[in-house]
C-alpha cells in the first residue's frame, strides 16, 4: 500500500474532483437565495419577526394551533407569533375534521394583514407520526445495510467492495470463517467466476 497502483491514483483523483463538486454545490446552495428543498415562499422564520413587510405576499407558516374558533396558530413554541388562519379547516388537504388545539399545521396562503393569513392550503401532521417514521426509517436503513454486508465484501487488495460469491449462499455461509481469503487469493480473477457481478462486455 506504500506505492499506490496506477488505478488507485485515478480513483482518488476522481473522488477528490467529485467531492469538490459536491462540496461546491452545498456551499453554492447555502450562499444563493432560494433553497432547492425549502419552499420558495417566505416561512414563519422570516415572517414572524416582521409580518408587516410580508402583507399581501404568499407565505407558508408552520405552527401549532392555539385556538380553534377562529383557528389561530402560534409559530413559536412560546406561543408568540400568532396568526389567524382564514379558511384553515375548509382548506385542510390531508384530514377531514376541523383542527384541534395542539395540532401542528403548515398553512400556505396570502398574508392579508400583520396577523391574518387567508389560507389556500393547510397540511397537518400528528406528533406520533414522527416516531413511526423514525422507527420504519431505521428498519429500512438496517435492512439495506444488512443486505449490503451479505452481498458484498471489502477486498483488501483492491481497497474496494466486490460481490460475495453467490453459487450457494448456504455452503458459503458454513465455510465463511474458513479460508475465504485463500479461495480468493487472486482478486482480479473473481469477476469471471459465477458470482454476483460479471464484467460488462
Amino acid at each position: 500500500m506504500q506505492s499506490l497502483p496506477a488505478g488507485q491514483r485515478g480513483r482518488i483523483l476522481a473522488a477528490v474532483v467529485l467531492a469538490a463538486l459536491l462540496g461546491g454545490c452545498l456551499l453554492w446552495a447555502g450562499a444563493t437565495p432560494g433553497d432547492p428543498i425549502d419552499g420558495a415562499y417566505p416561512d414563519e422564520v422570516e415572517v414572524t419577526p416582521a409580518p408587516e413587510s410580508y402583507v399581501g405576499e404568499q407565505v407558508s407558516l408552520g405552527g401549532q394551533v392555539v385556538d380553534t374558533d377562529p383557528v389561530v396558530i402560534a409559530t413559536r413554541a412560546s406561543g408568540y407569533g400568532q396568526f389567524t388562519l382564514v379558511g384553515a379547516d375548509e382548506r385542510l388537504q390531508n384530514a377531514d375534521g376541523p383542527l384541534d388545539e395542539g395540532d401542528r399545521v403548515t398553512a400556505f396562503g396570502t398574508l392579508e394583514d400583520e396577523s391574518t393569513l387567508v389560507v389556500e392550503r393547510t397540511t397537518t401532521r400528528q406528533r406520533a407520526e414522527t416516531r413511526y417514521m423514525l422507527v420504519v426509517s431505521a428498519i429500512a436503513g438496517l435492512w439495506v445495510a444488512g443486505r449490503f454486508v451479505r452481498g458484498w465484501r471489502f477486498d483488501r487488495e483492491t481497497l474496494a467492495f466486490v460481490p460475495r460469491a453467490q453459487s450457494s449462499e448456504a455452503d458459503r455461509r458454513a465455510s465463511r470463517d474458513h479460508g475465504e481469503d485463500d479461495r480468493r487469493a487472486n482478486p482480479s480473477d473473481h469477476p469471471v467466476n459465477a458470482d454476483g457481478g460479471e464484467r460488462r462486455a
Binding site: 414563519e44 422564520v45 409559530t75 413559536r76 401542528r104 407520526e129 414522527t130 426509517s137 429500512a140
Partner: peptide, 25 residues
C-alpha cells in the same frame, strides 16, 4: 437568513423525516 431557525420550526423540520421504508421497498 436561513440560519436562524426557531425552536418550533426545528420541530416541524424534524417531523419531516422521510419514510425511508417506502423508498427502499
Amino acid at each position: 437568513m436561513r440560519t436562524r431557525r426557531t425552536t418550533l420550526s426545528t420541530l416541524t423540520e424534524a417531523s419531516a423525516v422521510p419514510d425511508l421504508l417506502t423508498h427502499v421497498l
